[in-house]
Design a protein around this nucleic acid. Structure first.
Length: 681
DNA sequence: CGCCCTCGAGTTCC
DNA sequence: CTCGAGGGCG
């Protein structure tokens, strides 16, 4: 049995350790060294193991977690945890403010702005100054009892100083810092476990551990943002802002970045200020919670449905979102490649609605382990292209099966082939209608024959009606035939015919590229055109002649040979020739052009105001420089437009000069001035 | 043979 | 933008 001395010592140790905890984790101002802290902790642990009756729920030793439990109990929230209405713009916010003003009979009111943590809402109940329950939000009325896990969070006070109400509830958001998230994922990767998709997902996983010793090893943290309810004779402050200050004095961790705003203009300033700055915070925030400060006004405004009228959440455009994966469909590419893509329940991400996302190939789907029916996390890679990050494993429905590609081409039902060692599967049927459409689209596209007014839908119509059966068929079209089609008047028909006619005179390189030879893109087409000067010369070239061109290796050469050996391809080329498509380049003018930018390599990135990227690339090539798409050590200049992404960053790392559009134009006009002032040779 | 750089191909949304 | 793969070079 513990004697009085031991009992008193245990209490003293608990009080000291709890205070040190508060200084370290809540105030961020420790007054003892880690070693001293450990010494006190060890002493308490020894006492508790000798006299188990001294072990109290508020003991700091509880922070290391307890043995696993079977399941979480259910906790009823006496006062439901409400959700918040959302606003997405200044206009929405102003409209909300007007509504509130009306409901308050035109009286003006002050507000509080709080950064909205991307974590999990939690209700903590204290009785006689001791934490007794920690529960998740659940459906707002009933949550899960995760008290043992909450105790492991160092910034949650286990015991409060005198002056706290007898029984009361505070609400807060449990979250994981970006650094903590990265650390956990590194550990999981090392153990071969599936990775958490984001800090929120990871915090949820940590909190739902039945073994709280695991939770204890996760660096979870909490910000308290609300007093739920309180019983016992205490006079409560009259405003939210003062309530938060009071809770802070009791030892709760409150976000210091929150701000008391006298008027709407200050709220707008706060929201704008953190729009970008939030990315520099060590934790993830997805918006700002705006609350009417006075509690009597809050009471007057009340609750509608499950949302209080006295608060709203300003949501920043999300970089990520979660949605349901409805199905995985398959596209057939121009080369016959089968590319699975995700059909999603539409979701707003970064201000646009996302319905589809590519899944690249079967391996990609397997690696990400997404299955039909999964809830998946979606983001816009480089702020543009939708991408599936991964599934939320907790929400996977029973019986969701791993994905495998269908055995047949979805278009023509030919059995698919997957060359050994290759990641992509193919439809081997060269006459596959899907490939025909993709080939036609490629032929008319901007980088190829550049036929204006012929897009995806017209290509499809032409093939479906039989007006065109291969790329050469375009050049036999008449205005009368086009006018038969729906939504095609005389004027547009004439425009299309003119655009097709104009494309007869494209450069040889564009024509070679347009043919759609495997492994021959715009660059290789350029090489081949420059080497051979005409399509017939290229067609007659033996394999070794192709291979001797720097940049053309065995695969490309074989692909070219194979393309021109094919009877059908030869027929189409003959047709093209017969309809008057130009098949050679004019002899290169021998006069050497002035090349003031010779030897320089430019990389363009981001959106420019006065130039398109292709235009800019043409400009520098004209002056003897080259344009590359990737930043390497060889790059001379990176020209960064608006919203420049990773390339500009990489340039900084490699200490390569980054030019603005203005600086670039200045550099070009200076170079041109040199050309003009140099006498022709 | 392995590494590094480039090119090809497919892709989403407005 | 990203991944995969081709080509060149040490």
């Amino acid at each position: 049995m513990a004697d009085e001395k031991a009992t008193a010592r245990a209490k003293a140790l608990r009080d000291q350790l709890n205070e040190h905890n508060r200084r370290y984790y809540v105030l961020d101002a420790p007054t003892v060294s880690d070693a001293e802290y450990d010494l006190l902790m060890n002493e308490l642990r020894a006492l508790e193991s000798e006299y188990p009756e001294l072990l109290t729920p508020d003991s700091p030793t509880q922070r290391v977690g307890a043995p696993p439990i079977e399941a979480f109990g259910v906790v009823e929230h006496p006062l439901p945890l409400l959700s918040l209405g959302n606003v997405f713009s200044h206009e929405d916010l102003e409209a909300w403010h007007r509504r509130v003003t009306n409901l308050l009979d035109g009286r003006s009111f002050d507000l509080v702005c709080e950064l909205k943590m991307d974590g999990l809402a939690m209700a903590l109940v204290y009785e006689n100054g001791v934490l007794v329950t920690g529960a998740t939000r659940g459906d707002g009325v009933r949550g899960e009892n995760v008290t043992q896990n909450i105790r492991t969070i160092r910034s949650v006070p286990l015991r409060l100083p005198p002056g706290a109400p007898q029984r009361f509830e505070v609400r807060g958001e449990v979250y994981l810092s970006k650094g903590g998230f990265a650390r956990i994922n590194e550990e999981r990767a090392a153990q071969g476990l599936p990775l958490y998709a984001n800090p929120r997902n990871s915090a949820a996983g940590s909190l739902r551990q039945l073994d709280s010793r695991i939770t204890a090893s996760r660096p979870l943290d909490i910000f308290i943002y609300q007093l739920g309810w309180a019983e016992g004779a205490v006079s409560l402050p009259p405003s939210h802002w003062e309530t938060m200050a009071w809770l802070k004095s009791l030892g709760f961790r409150i976000n210091d970045l929150n701000r008391h705003c006298p008027a709407l203009a200050d709220v707008i300033a706060f929201v704008d200020e953190w729009q970008d700055k939030r990315h520099d915070l060590p934790y993830e925030t997805d918006g700002v919670v705006i609350k009417v400060n006075r509690l009597d006004y809050q009471a007057q405004l009340g609750v509608v449905g499950r949302e209080p009228r006295w608060a709203t959440a300003y949501k920043y455009p999300s970089v990520q979102g979660t949605t349901k994966l409805v199905s995985i469909d398959v596209n057939v590419g121009r080369t016959g490649s089968l590319n699975p893509f995700a059909v999603l329940e539409p979701v707003q991400v970064g201000g646009v609605t996302i319905r589809h996302a590519t899944l690249h190939n079967e391996e990609d789907v397997r690696r990400k382990d997404v299955r039909v029916g999964d809830t998946v996390i979606v983001q816009r890679a480089g702020e543009v292209i939708p991408e599936i990050v991964g599934p939320v494993l907790e929400l996977r429905p029973e019986g969701a099966a791993p994905y495998s590609l269908p055995a047949e081409c979805p278009e023509c039902h030919t059995p698919i082939v997957r060359p050994p060692g290759e990641a992509m599967a193919y439809c081997p049927n060269k006459a596959c209608p899907a490939q025909g459409l993709e080939l036609l689209k490629h032929f008319v596209s901007r980088g190829a024959m550049d036929i204006d007014g012929v897009g995806e839908s017209l290509c499809a119509t032409l093939l479906a009606t039989g007006l065109v059966s291969d790329v050469a068929g375009l050049y036999r079209l008449t205005a009368e035939q086009l006018e038969q089609l729906e939504r095609m008047g005389q004027k547009s028909a004439a425009n299309v015919i003119a655009a097709i006619a104009a494309s007869r005179d494209r450069s040889l390189a564009r024509l070679i590229f347009a043919l759609g030879i495997r492994h021959v893109g715009s660059e290789n087409a350029e090489l081949l055109a420059r080497q051979f000067g005409s399509l017939s010369a290229l067609m007659a070239a033996p394999e070794d002649a192709l291979m001797s061109i720097p940049g053309i290796g065995p695969k490309v050469a074989a692909s070219v040979i194979e393309h021109f050996e094919d009877e059908e391809n030869r027929r189409v080329i003959a047709e093209l020739r017969a309809t008057g498509v130009r098949m050679e380049d004019e002899a290169q003018p021998l006069s050497a052009k002035a090349t003031p930018l010779a030897g320089l390599e430019f990389v363009f990135t981001g959106r420019m105001d006065r130039l398109t990227r292709t235009n800019a690339e043409a400009m520098v090539k004209e002056l003897g420089a080259t344009a590359a798409s990737n930043v390497t050590r060889k790059t001379s200049y990176v020209v960064a437009g608006e919203d420049a992404g990773s390339k500009a960053e990489r340039a900084q790392q490699l200490k390569i000069p980054v030019l603005t559009e203005e600086e670039f134009l200045a550099l070009v006009s200076e170079a041109k001035r040199q050309v003009d002032s140099t006498p022709e040779t």
